[in-house]
Simulated assay, not measured.
Amino acid sequence: MTLPPPPFLTRPERDLRGWMARFDPDALPVLAETAVMLETWRANEDAVDAHLMTQTIVRDPLMTLKLFAQVARTTRRRSWDDARGDAETVTAALVMLGIGPFFRHFGPQAVAESWLCTTPGALDGFMAVLERSRRAAAFALAFAVHRLDHDAAVLHEAALLHDFAELLLWLQAPTLAQAVAHRLRTEPGLRSLQAQQELLNIALPDLQHALMEAWRLPSLLVRATDDRHLEDPQVRNVTLAIRVARHSAHGWDDAALPDDVRDIADFLHLSEEPTRRLLHEIDTADVD
């Protein structure tokens, strides 16, 4: 569905509260491929189920956010005791919501790619974050499966959503997102949190955590994306996946990768050479 984006923000909000007010999960666009599949399914609703729909939704962090937020609102209206622990995966959320109610709530969706196509460089920046998130999700899932973690699907989704605030920044304020990216590219050693604080008046992880709490995303998902809890093996699973996805985004010769390989090998109880092979196998398997 082609809808114009809201007016882009060109000056940063003053504080976290101002930034939070900019985002409504219902107003978020989705990826073009997701929008097309939703309309295909809508035309033949009786032939689709939660497992089929999950295959597309788990590749789209925006649609994943919208789904979890809607399930939280629905369960809260039903006055269930604890909505946050009931649907920790996309499949569970779809089952809880129901296929019919899903399509009644989610009509034709705006498309993220269309929002950004008129701002030079914005779509490239957005897609780079999306690709990194998808690769991180693949790494996180593989690490969790290797560790026999029963929450592997949740950790896959946690890695996919780990940087969703950066995606939202590109969608709402592409020129500010470009400014942050430019600072980081041209000032080696500058920490991303410092650049964000100076240019946006907030740190994106703080915005992300606040939105996840406000939208009542599943508590395990919220915790697994919180890098402050590295003593938790599930958080470390996600963090290591994010690290290797970020450092290998432009190839496997980044100077930080040897440290990543060593830490992942220790985490998975492997030696370093099998770990390198595993990482390459995961990355190759994730290529469409």
Rank of each mutant, 00 (worst) to 15 (best):
residue 176 L to D: 12
residue 157 E to A: 14
residue 172 Q to Y: 14
residue 155 L to V: 00
residue 134 R to K: 10
residue 166 E to G: 12
residue 162 H to W: 06
residue 121 G to M: 10
residue 185 R to S: 15
residue 168 L to K: 00
residue 123 L to K: 05
residue 129 V to E: 14
residue 155 L to H: 13
residue 177 A to N: 13
residue 150 H to N: 06
residue 144 A to V: 02
residue 120 P to T: 00
residue 174 P to R: 07
residue 125 G to P: 06
residue 118 T to E: 15
residue 150 H to A: 15
residue 139 F to R: 00
residue 152 A to F: 07
residue 148 L to Q: 13
residue 162 H to Y: 15
residue 113 E to Y: 07
residue 115 W to P: 06
residue 151 D to A: 14
residue 116 L to Q: 02
residue 113 E to I: 07
residue 145 V to Q: 11
residue 160 L to W: 03
residue 125 G to V: 03
residue 161 L to M: 11
residue 159 A to L: 04
residue 138 A to N: 07
residue 149 D to R: 11
residue 170 W to R: 08
residue 118 T to N: 13
residue 168 L to E: 06
residue 132 R to V: 10
residue 115 W to K: 03
residue 151 D to H: 14
residue 143 F to C: 07
residue 132 R to K: 13
residue 129 V to T: 10
residue 156 H to F: 10
residue 132 R to H: 14
residue 144 A to K: 03
residue 164 F to L: 01
residue 122 A to H: 01
residue 150 H to L: 12
residue 175 T to K: 14
residue 122 A to Y: 05
residue 179 A to N: 14
residue 144 A to H: 09
residue 148 L to D: 13
residue 124 D to H: 11
residue 167 L to N: 05
residue 121 G to F: 07
residue 187 E to D: 13
residue 121 G to E: 12
residue 159 A to I: 07
residue 134 R to Y: 00
residue 143 F to E: 00
residue 188 P to M: 03
residue 152 A to N: 05
residue 150 H to T: 10
residue 173 A to R: 04
residue 142 A to G: 05
residue 112 A to K: 10
residue 128 A to P: 00
residue 152 A to S: 12
residue 149 D to L: 08
residue 157 E to S: 15
residue 165 A to T: 04
residue 164 F to G: 01
residue 113 E to T: 07
residue 149 D to F: 07
residue 174 P to W: 12
residue 138 A to G: 09
residue 141 L to G: 01
residue 167 L to M: 13
residue 128 A to F: 08
residue 175 T to E: 15
residue 154 V to T: 15
residue 162 H to S: 10
residue 161 L to W: 03
residue 112 A to N: 08
residue 135 R to L: 15
residue 185 R to V: 00
residue 160 L to Q: 07
residue 166 E to K: 11
residue 169 L to N: 05
residue 164 F to S: 09
residue 145 V to G: 00
residue 125 G to E: 08
residue 151 D to R: 13
residue 160 L to C: 06
residue 156 H to K: 10
residue 153 A to M: 08
residue 135 R to T: 14
residue 142 A to C: 09
residue 125 G to Y: 02
residue 186 T to D: 07
residue 169 L to Q: 01
residue 172 Q to S: 15
residue 128 A to C: 02
residue 176 L to F: 10
residue 171 L to P: 08
residue 115 W to I: 00
residue 132 R to F: 01
residue 152 A to P: 05
residue 174 P to L: 11
residue 150 H to S: 15
residue 111 V to E: 12
residue 137 A to P: 10
residue 179 A to T: 12
residue 170 W to D: 11
residue 124 D to Q: 14
residue 162 H to M: 01
residue 147 R to V: 00
residue 117 C to F: 01
residue 184 L to E: 03
residue 163 D to K: 13
residue 156 H to Y: 12
residue 127 M to T: 07
residue 171 L to H: 08
residue 158 A to V: 08
residue 187 E to L: 12
residue 145 V to C: 06
residue 140 A to P: 11
residue 183 R to L: 09
residue 116 L to S: 04
residue 158 A to Y: 02
residue 152 A to C: 08
residue 141 L to T: 00
residue 113 E to K: 10
residue 131 E to P: 00
residue 161 L to N: 02
residue 113 E to W: 10
residue 165 A to H: 03
